[in-house]
Nucleic acid binder design. Structure first.
Length: 554
RNA sequence: GCCCCUGUAGCUCAGGGGAUAGAGCACCGCCCUCCGGAGGCGGGAGCGAAGGUUCGAAUCCUUCCAGGGGCGCCA
């Protein structure tokens, strides 16, 4: 019996009481109730606080209501025992038969196990990374590569149609400085003031020259354009490749420059002006963002006639909405949180609903440690840590897992030595090891000609305490994914996997799966093998959500 | 000055208003006659401070303290 099924049973018991006239609920019967796994074993397999929650509305004492519900629940198929405890908790013990069934359900669902309808039918636009193409992807942008992509996978499993987008800032001053730096490097001149230095600039300048040998013979302006166009394209190609190697591929790479060239920016501004949300002052055009909760009004067209950075965002947002995305997400680093106010004001200015049509997720900073010492990062000193450096140091699996396992709200210190270690203090290895162990037992079973139990297996065979614990953990997965989706917190999946791996190890230590010696295979062996198979399914599905491999062997 | 995030065990971190606050690492002590010991079992120690809301607060609200990040007609 799963938590969802239990919730239904409790709702049914409530409904029965209401229909019998023994319970009055002015607001009606809730469609679902909280069913949790108690920490304390004495509190049963599952517990619910419905009696505490509804007592006041029903005008009853919590324990009185709990008692009224207990009888109806106890008669429900699959429930072995219902106890009332403390102020009015209902502690439910599930029968082994109804619990063991979960193993079959998981295997039957396979890769789809964990899905739900949190975002059923919704189209979600996820914008993340969006780093400037003026240099290799540095570590700051990598957190969202891991977390954003995981979130996309989670949203997909919960029913959404997801578009991953990379907003490519190929317009404006930074790109000018980038082109100038390339040009200077090609000429063998020193790095211009406010320019970009580093080996990659030299490399790209060289590559551009190789492609267009006559570039330096052109007039300065034309030469700069050559370096701009080719340089940006090359840089962007490298970033794309790095992300691809990291397991992250975007559905749309959106070029800011196009928004300016296509007139999309003017259209967005015209719309805002129509709505009365712009004004002119000091030679510039402003968005009335303060009116919509921002700290101050913001310039959208500078006094020199150039669109501000925000103007591109206006057009891009409008474009997303016109492409039919009701929900847009933008993921930013904490160093850009100051941008939230104006973006949300923009949403309101368009007549949309901030927080619904646009949600902005902020990820705090990532610090890298080596030998316990912070890794100093300096562009000038050439010690910029890029996504490729991280992958070289600890690998894709550890990188993605390490970045996704913590709440985005907390600043994280990643110890490269720890995450490079192939030992148990490295959480990703703990989970992957559990998966490899599972795979190994399934292989051994197959070698013995033993297959996991099929559809008609007797679930009550899985009655051992550790089997129950593992089954309840497996039953939890869809709820964990749903919570990760609705709270936008992929780290919940990682933590869940660690707990489930631990639960599997305990089962493994207590319950012999395969026949010993020349023992004849029996139904218990096959039932346990099914449970092992179900565990593999859950671990593999969970790791896939994080973009981490589930190795058969290690 | 204003805004955002954080403060939980020696360390790194979980903890969607619920019962006796958890995990890994580190430390101490156990468990290998067969499925992977990269594992399991046991042990000590903690919610930054003060108020408030609630039947019930690590969780919600207020104030304060401490740390991190941010407050351009840059992108």
């Amino acid at each position: 019996m799963t938590p969802a099924e239990l919730s239904d049973a409790i709702v049914a018991a409530l409904t029965a009481q209401v229909e019998a006239g023994t319970l009055r609920l002015p607001d009606g019967v809730p469609s679902e109730v909280v069913v949790e796994r108690p920490r304390n074993k004495e509190h049963g397999d599952y517990a619910t606080n419905v009696a505490l929650k509804l007592a006041k509305k029903a005008g009853m004492a919590p324990r009185e209501l709990a008692e009224a519900l207990a009888d109806g629940l106890a008669a429900t198929d699959g429930i072995a025992k219902v106890d009332i405890a403390g102020p009015g908790f209902l502690n439910i013990t599930v029968s082994a038969g109804s619990q063991g069934k979960v193993a079959g359900d998981v295997v039957a669902a396979g890769a789809a196990y964990g899905s739900s309808d949190v975002f059923a039918g919704e189209r979600i636009n996820l914008e993340f990374v969006s780093a400037n193409p003026t240099g290799p992807l540095h570590i700051g942008g990598v957190r969202w590569a891991a977390v954003g992509d995981a979130l996309g996978r989670i949203f997909t499993l919960t029913g959404a149609e997801v578009s991953r987008e990379y907003y490519f800032n190929d317009h404006g001053g930074q790109i000018d400085r980038f082109s100038n730096s390339l040009l200077a490097a090609a000429k063998g001149e020193p790095v211009p003031e406010d320019g970009y230095g580093g080996q990659y600039i030299e490399d790209i300048a060289k590559a551009v020259l190789k492609k267009q040998p006559g570039a330096l013979d052109l007039p300065e302006d034309e030469a700069r354009e050559v370096f701009r166009a080719d340089g940006v394209e090359m840089m962007f190609g490298e970033i794309k490749q790095s992300l691809h190697d990291f397991g992250v591929d975007f559905d749309v790479y959106f070029h800011e420059d196009n928004l300016h060239k296509s007139g999309a920016v003017e259209r967005a501004i015209a719309r805002l002006t129509e709505l009365g949300n712009t004004f002119e002052a000091e030679g510039a055009l402003w968005l009335r963002s303060e009116k919509f909760g921002d700290d101050k009004d913001r310039v959208i067209v500078r006094s020199d006639g150039q669109g501000s950075y925000l103007s591109g965002d206006l057009a891009y947002y409008l474009d997303k909405r016109e492409r039919g995305f009701e929900r847009c997400f933008i993921m930013l680093g904490a160093d850009h949180h100051g941008y939230v106010g104006r973006l949300m004001a923009m949403v309101s200015a368009f007549g949309d609903e901030p927080g619904k049509n646009l949600e902005i997720l902020i990820g705090q900073m990532v610090n890298l440690l080596r030998d316990g010492q912070p890794l100093r990062m300096s562009k000038r000193a050439g010690t910029v840590v890029t996504i490729d450096d991280l992958v070289d140091a600890i690998g894709v699996d550890a990188s993605r897992y390490a970045l996704a396992r913590f709440s985005s709200d907390s600043t994280i210190d990643l110890d490269l030595d720890l995450w490079a270690r192939q030992s148990s203090d490295n959480p990703v290895f703990y989970v992957q090891y559990a998966h490899a162990r599972v795979a190994s037992i399934l292989r051994n079973g197959a070698d013995l000609g033993l297959a996991p139990a099929g559809a008609g297996f007797d679930p009550s065979l899985l009655a051992h305490e550790k089997e129950g614990e593992l089954l309840r953990a497996l039953a939890e997965f869809p709820r964990v994914v749903a919570a990760a989706a609705s709270l936008r917190e992929p780290h919940r999946v990682a933590r869940y996997l660690e707990a489930t791996a631990a639960s599997y190890h305990r089962f493994y230590d207590n319950c012999r799966v395969l026949p010993m010696g020349d023992e004849e295979p029996n139904d218990l062996h096959r039932a346990r093998l099914l449970l092992v198979f179900a565990t593999q399914t859950v671990l593999a599905n969970g790791l896939r959500l994080l973009g981490v491999s589930a190795p058969e062997r290690m």
